[in-house]
């Protein structure tokens, strides 16, 4: 019971990070700021959600698979963020403070 409650809290916290990140994506002025909001939300939100789900599954194998999914998404999210930021810097898109 307490484990399920803990998982619920973790997943809810993860969802909250996604909501905050989405608000940032919609409200922030330029691509780099939006990227900042999105990558933070993505990293923490997904991490917390995966942690919560991992607590709920029964077997060690499934836990390891969730861990693998989290690792792959985290790495690809970081690399895509880097690629988009590099593209913004090379292009003439408006960036605050340039």
């Amino acid at each position: 019971m307490s484990i399920e409650l803990l998982a619920l809290v973790l997943i809810a916290a993860g969802a909250a990070f996604f909501v905050v990140g989405t608000i940032g994506l919609l409200r922030f002025p330029d691509t780099l700021c939006r990227l900042h909001a999105l990558t933070k939300a993505d990293g923490l939100g997904l991490g917390l959600t995966c942690l919560g789900v991992a607590l709920l599954v029964g077997s060690v194998g499934e836990m390891l698979r969730i861990l693998l999914i989290w690792g792959l998404v985290a790495v690809s999210s970081a690399v895509s963020g880097h690629l988009i930021a590099g593209h913004v810097l090379r292009s003439n898109a408006p960036v605050r403070g340039r």
Partner: peptide, 16 residues
């Protein structure tokens, strides 16, 4: 030219 980071990324994830 994508640079070093995507190449490293590819080396990391391709086996997976």
């Amino acid at each position: 030219e994508l640079g070093d980071l995507p190449r490293g990324f590819a080396r990391l994830v391709l086996p997976a």
